[in-house]
Nucleic acid binder design. Structure first.
Lengths: 125, 125, 125, 125
DNA sequence: GTGGTCTAGACCACT
DNA sequence: GTGGTCTAGACCACA
């Protein structure tokens, strides 16, 4: 379990944690059905408060990345309701496209940036 | 001046305002050198606090979209320091790509979504 | 013995178990004097902790649905102290009526919903 | 604003608060668009912690009874998506019907109990 | 041992 | 002044 938190970042800790776990799922380090560590254990491991971890888990649950199994705690369970999530993603993408347009960053540049990110993780072949 | 603010959104008002103004620049509704409305007037128009408008203008200045002129107030002045901004944009894009990968939304889908956004504003061809 | 437990529900497992057993009594699957399975066996069958089954049985005893027999374990024995239970039921019903009123769900609708539930089990005529 | 909390109840404080506010809406004491008190003020008024009030407000938001206006805080705004809520209500009602059946409380009795509750608030003519 | 609930106090972003 | 976030510590219900 390699979670890296930047305490100097202006991004909320629970959001960093959320994103790190999503990264872990994307990288196939956590698999469907795996149980996440208990809030106390993970909090100790990364040196933050239990409640902050709890909040991250809650958000992940609301966003459809984990389910709570009352026996095993938080368990990876990714919803795949494509259409709904694609609209959300598009909504998040929109302001970035606007920034790009303002800066004269072309559509091709944006495509290339996405490909670069894929490449960073070796996902382009 | 068509600014739409969603008071029920979980996005901060000043960020919504910032993004709306960036949208306006991208849509060529505001041009280089145009003066934005005064803080007080815009606040009254939208029905939000002066401080909130002020904060939005400050952020726009820090992000290099406007300059503050003693006499004319905030004036559109977009920096074009491409490389630096591209890195920022890529950093913002990364967590979205992760979410997409988790949801089995393909790279091609992401490209298509960006194209769709361009298309929404008639920028393709 | 068909007990269905939803491990992802936000309802406590022991309460789900309690309700399932009460459902069984209502459906006449368990009759006055029948012995429930042993704590250990039921726990294994459902895949939950022994303590959880124990708790469910305790609550059923307190609520007057089973008695505990030294030799036979938990035995169905339904109290019929109508008036007291009716007050409890009414107390539980009250917040639901409030929710219904807020949602503009009429009194007739509530009656109909209860009838529907009776109908689901073929109890109407 | 008359909120009554029972500190000896085994019901969670935030749920009691939630239900009291729903009661207030049902009783037409709070109207669509009214702003609820700030979490700090209400917490002081009823002598509980700010975070507990916050949790109650969060649940009310998730359940579609209030919306958060970033200017005015929590505002009464009742969703009226009848069908969905009717299913939820029916699901909550089901175990109560089962208890009634076990106790030999008739369908007519249940109807009468609901009418009694309506009557308690003078809603039956 | 685990999560859920509650309390308390603090800082900061936002309005 | 308000809510959002984070920390900390405690108790209890649950498993």
């Amino acid at each position: 379990m390699y979670i890296e938190i930047d305490f100097n970042s202006d991004e909320a800790l629970y959001l960093q944690l959320r994103n790190q776990i999503i990264l872990g799922i994307a990288l196939d380090q956590y698999h469907e059905g795996d149980a996440l560590p208990s809030v106390r254990q993970l909090a100790d491991d990364i040196g933050i408060n239990m409640h902050t971890v709890n909040k991250a888990y809650s958000v992940l649950r609301q966003d459809g990345y984990v389910k709570v199994d009352r026996r095993r705690g938080a368990v990876i369970a990714v919803d795949v309701v494509k259409e709904e999530h694609m609209q959300q993603l598009k909504a998040k993408l929109r302001p970035m496209v606007m920034e790009a347009v303002c800066r004269d960053i072309s559509r091709e540049n944006l495509h290339a940036m996405i490909d670069e990110i894929y490449n960073d993780y070796g996902w382009l072949e």
